[in-house]
Amino acid sequence: FKGLTPYLPLQAMDELAKCERVEMPRIPAPFWPEGEEKAREWLETDEKVRKLRSMGAWSDLNDRIAGFSPYFRSVEHSAQIKGSLLTRREKAFKEGRINLLSCSTTMEMGVDIGGLSAVAMNNVPPHPANFLQRAGRAGRRGETSALSFTLCKSTPQGEAVFNNPLWAFTTALSVPQVALQSGRIIQRHVNALSLTQFLVQNTNDEVFKLNCGWFFNTDEAEMRSSPSLRFQEWCREGMAESQLKQNVDWLCHGSSLAGIPADQLYN
Rank of each mutant, 00 (worst) to 15 (best):
N130P: 02
N163L: 03
T155Q: 02
T150F: 00
G115K: 00
M107P: 01
N211H: 10
E41M: 13
L229Q: 08
Q197C: 09
Q80M: 09
S69F: 15
R40W: 14
S256G: 02
I186M: 01
G67H: 14
S255E: 02
S182E: 05
K209T: 11
I65D: 08
E36F: 12
R50C: 13
E47K: 15
T171W: 00
P30R: 15
S78I: 02
S182H: 04
A129F: 00
S117D: 12
N247D: 15
F162R: 06
T218K: 12
T45E: 14
M107Y: 04
R88S: 10
W214I: 04
S154M: 08
T203R: 13
S256Y: 02
K2I: 07
M121T: 02
L251D: 11
V124G: 13
D112P: 06
M121W: 05
R97W: 00
T5L: 04
F93K: 06
Q201T: 06
P33L: 08
S256Q: 07
L8P: 05
V22H: 11
A240N: 15
K82N: 12
N164H: 05
S182I: 03
N267Y: 12
G67Q: 15
H127G: 01
M107I: 13
T170A: 10
N267T: 08
M109E: 07
K94I: 03
Q11V: 11
V178G: 01
N204M: 04
H127K: 08
W42Q: 01
N267P: 00
